[in-house]
Structures are given as structure tokens and as C-alpha cells.
């Protein structure tokens, strides 16, 4: 049990989830597998950091992602190698050349607020009372005239949504289902 490693992971790695997902969506043709890859990459990063903490967590995270994709390609899974050569990926890596930028406290707060504001109204209300006003499940239930069970379910729902949106969220997308999933168009040659 290494609490400092846990803290490091939360502070230095999760912060870059949006970037990681953007990278994965560009190089991996199967959208439905992107979150699974993200989890696998986190496992690898965490395990590696047990021995040595990387100097640049962000670069290390991206390098781990790249290696994982490489392994998958070597194993001859469905991915097209062309996807790995997607020129857009270079943008992500070029970005890496710029000096490490940390989010200011204000930017972090803004990010959390955006994720919080996107919660469904009831869920948002309950999360606020629980987490900001520090009420117990029972107190929230009494205040809103709900059963404890309902409150607990809403808290669970909020936690689930927030774990995807606080770190992994991109600026709101109009309609996810309208995304055209088309490798040919996205990874086309210039």
C-alpha cells in the first residue's frame, strides 16, 4: 500500500485523461475499445511508477499509450497499421515539445464546475448537498423528502458520471451519436 503513489497517480496522470483519450481516438479505429485501452494504460503506468516516478508524467503516459498500441498491432489484432500513421497523432506529440504546463487552480476549478453543471438536475442537487454541504445520506434524504436508497443511487450515478467527465471531458459535444465513425474519412491520405 503506497499512498504517495496513489496521490501521485491522481495528481499527475489523471489530469491528462482528455489528452490521452484524444490520442487514442485518433490512432485506434474502434471507438468502443478506447476506454478499455485507457484503463490498460493506467495499469501499466501505475505499475511502472512503482519503481521509478517518470520525470515527465505526461510524456510517459503518451509513450505508454503508444507502446500499448504497438503491442496490439504486433499481435495482429484488427487495427490497421495506417491508423498508427495518422498524421494527426503528430500534433499530439508536437504538443509535447512545449514546456510542461500545469493547470492553475482556477482552471481546475473551472473544469470541475463544468463537469458538475453537466450532471442531470436531481443528481447535481444531491451531489452538491452531499459533497459541498457535507450532509449525510440521511440528511439529504430528509431535506429532499426522498428515501435514503434513492439518494444513494443518485450519489452513485453522480460518481460514475463525474469520473468520466472531470478528467476526461472534452468541451461539450453536440451529439455523440451523430459522430461519423469513418476511418477512411478521418485517416485519409492528404
Amino acid at each position: 500500500m503506497d499512498d504517495s503513489l496513489d496521490t501521485w497517480f491522481k495528481r499527475e496522470i489523471l489530469l491528462h485523461e482528455a489528452l490521452l483519450l484524444r490520442y487514442l481516438r485518433r490512432v485506434w479505429p474502434r471507438r468502443d475499445e478506447v476506454q478499455d485501452l485507457r484503463q490498460e494504460i493506467y495499469v501499466r503506468v501505475y505499475e511502472a511508477a512503482r519503481n521509478v516516478r517518470p520525470v515527465s508524467p505526461r510524456a510517459f503516459l503518451l509513450a505508454t499509450a503508444r507502446n500499448l498500441i504497438t503491442d496490439r498491432v504486433r499481435r495482429g489484432r484488427v487495427v490497421r497499421i495506417e491508423a498508427v500513421g495518422d498524421p494527426d497523432v503528430l500534433n499530439v506529440i508536437v504538443d509535447e515539445l512545449s514546456p510542461e504546463r500545469r493547470l492553475s487552480a482556477w482552471q481546475e476549478l473551472k473544469r470541475v464546475t463544468r463537469a458538475f453543471n453537466q450532471l442531470p438536475p436531481r443528481c447535481r442537487e444531491i451531489v452538491w448537498l452531499k459533497k459541498v454541504d457535507d450532509l449525510s445520506m440521511q440528511e439529504v434524504a430528509d431535506l429532499l423528502g426522498l428515501s435514503v436508497r434513492t439518494v444513494e443511487n443518485q450519489v452513485l450515478k453522480g460518481m460514475r458520471l463525474l469520473s468520466d467527465t472531470v478528467f476526461g471531458a472534452h468541451p461539450p459535444v453536440a451529439n455523440r451519436s451523430s459522430d461519423v465513425v469513418m476511418e477512411g474519412a478521418e485517416h485519409g491520405e492528404p
Partner: peptide, 15 residues
């Protein structure tokens, strides 16, 4: 850790 970090981040709204 991922779920916990997001949940803890919401605590910043106290500000």
C-alpha cells in the same frame, strides 16, 4: 483512484 479523484475534485466547489 480515478473515481475517487473525480469525487474529491467536486469538493473544490466548496470554494
Amino acid at each position: 483512484l480515478r473515481a475517487q479523484a473525480a469525487w474529491e475534485a467536486v469538493g473544490r466547489l466548496k470554494a
